[in-house]
Amino acid sequence: MTRRPFPLAIPPELTAYILDFHWDVDLLHALDLPTIELPVAELAHHLDLPFWAYDGPFKVTPHQVAADPLTYQAQYDRTLAADLRHPLDVVRRPDNRLTILDGIHRLLRAELEGRTTVSARVLPWSALDQIAVRD
């Protein structure tokens, strides 16, 4: 069986961040992964990328949501409800970069609260098959 391809067209600015296959967040959460503390600043560039939907996928950045919570009320409410007791899930890419798989809302909340670090679980690139959805 092969990995199921990602179901949406990925904008060029996100190809270095979004995996090109469909993966399962429940499989990710079930993994026993090491947890580390990361500086919010190390991941903050994610907040300037259009990860979130607004009249279509990949239209708004988390920083746009923070700057205009009335327009983006649903995403802002999700951000304020994000539970920072749960670590972000990141993947360590072959070039050693960390990119967020799950936890953008938690990262934005941490930034809004002025936190300097967040907890993150680190998935090695070699373990991606453990979260892949198969055809």
Rank of each mutant, 00 (worst) to 15 (best):
Y54P: 02
T116W: 06
R121Y: 02
F58L: 09
R93D: 03
H63Y: 09
T117S: 07
Y17V: 13
R92L: 06
V60T: 02
T116K: 13
G114S: 04
T2G: 06
I104T: 09
E37H: 14
A44R: 10
V118N: 01
L14C: 08
I36W: 05
R85K: 13
D55T: 06
R115L: 14
I100H: 07
H105C: 12
P50E: 08
D129I: 05
H63G: 01
P39R: 14
P7D: 06
T61S: 13
Y54D: 06
L84A: 03
L123H: 00
S119C: 11
L107V: 05
A74P: 01
H63V: 05
T117D: 01
R85H: 14
L33T: 08
E111V: 04
H105W: 11
P5H: 06
I131G: 02
T79A: 08
I36Y: 01
D55S: 13
H63K: 13
F58T: 07
R78K: 12
T99P: 02
R134L: 15
L47M: 00
A67S: 08
Y72Q: 04
V118T: 08
I100M: 05
I131Q: 00
A53I: 05
Q64D: 10
G114W: 05
D77L: 13
L84V: 04
I131E: 02
D24I: 00
E111R: 14
I100Q: 09
V25D: 05
D26F: 09
P7S: 10
P34I: 10
A41F: 02
L33G: 07
F58E: 04
L107H: 07
R85D: 15
Q130F: 13
L27A: 15
D32R: 15
P50H: 08
V91F: 03
